[in-house]
Design a protein around this nucleic acid. Sequence first.
DNA 1: GTCTATAGGCCGATAGAC
DNA 2: GTCTATCGGCCTATAGAC
Lengths: 206, 206
Amino acid sequence: MASERRSSEESAKTRTAILDATEKIMREKGYAAVSSRRVAAVAGLKSQLVHYHFGTMDDLFLALFRRTEEAFFTSHMRASASSNPLQMLWDRSIDARGNRLVAEFMALAHHREAIRTELARAAKRIRNVETAVWARMLEEHGISPETCPPVVASVLMAGISRALATEAALGVSVGHAETLAFVERYLQQMGLQRRPTETPARKKRP
Amino acid sequence: MASERRSSEESAKTRTAILDATEKIMREKGYAAVSSRRVAAVAGLKSQLVHYHFGTMDDLFLALFRRTEEAFFTSHMRASASSNPLQMLWDRSIDARGNRLVAEFMALAHHREAIRTELARAAKRIRNVETAVWARMLEEHGISPETCPPVVASVLMAGISRALATEAALGVSVGHAETLAFVERYLQQMGLQRRPTETPARKKRP
DNA sequence: GTCTATAGGCCGATAGAC
DNA sequence: GTCTATCGGCCTATAGAC
């Protein structure tokens, strides 16, 4: 029993190391650079262990996606339930680090059925959460669903933020400052509580 | 001379065939599936010809990007100069087929310096054109640049349309119909001349 | 669960004949 | 400009010993 526990603890540690290595490679070199040999090299393991623990490379991508999405959704729920949900959701959605991995999975999803399915499911789940937040905020401000349906607000917020993040990652920033100012001015009317003096959208990384 | 001409005609034909094949593979299988052997197979040629005519694979991607962007920019200018520029720009920007290739180049740009540079340059050029269109439209409708700077309008339009196109390609459509209706209602106030009975955003493919 | 060994395959790119 | 031939490398995945 003791050895069984130790064994499964070791196994969990190895699995985590493999997933961490995969994530690192995806962030830095893109999904196309992920190979069992490279993953193993980064994790300090033999490449055969990748297949032993995860099967095919597709299975590995899927496992990493699930781990990532689960953590993301949990913290997204927390942000939604905070006292300042719109600000927190907006800040999260323009965060460069988070978007990097998402961008890779989106690119991967175009050509891998399994990833596409999981990504679509995850996106719908997030959208529903954000739509509920918007429904509450719009109602509080007396804006009728006919004027702006909550789901439209959440599609717009998600779309604008993702576009800004994507462009910024590619070195395009024409009009970004003006757009950020425009959007945040609007969000403030809707309940954003950030004071004007604070720098927006620059979450510090530890 | 005659043989020289014929020779360079043949060369141009081969180059076009290689670029066509590359484009087809990128659309259908993604940039990661592009290899000199596969390109040659699709084009009905030997793989060495790919290197002979284009050098490295990076050079090939770059050549295809330039061809694509040149054609895109030309037709974009035509759309901007039409009598109904906002509608035409919007329709173009949510076109699924056009966005498929752009998405691949964006994914590629994250990891290839040369592509990233070219993409950034192209994006700025397009943005400036669209911003000029918006400046004209907003002025015609008496909306001051303080209320909504033209560059903000063009960032928003580009961002929203790209987000919708990306999500649709991945099988996510929650809130899309409502958002399309919302945006197009707004665009109509700004000079879109489509009649309400026409189906929006469904450009027929031959 | 991790090791060695290996099958079987696709890749980019170049050399040299024609 | 296109051909044949080929080098050297990285890839996924599995088999079988320990």
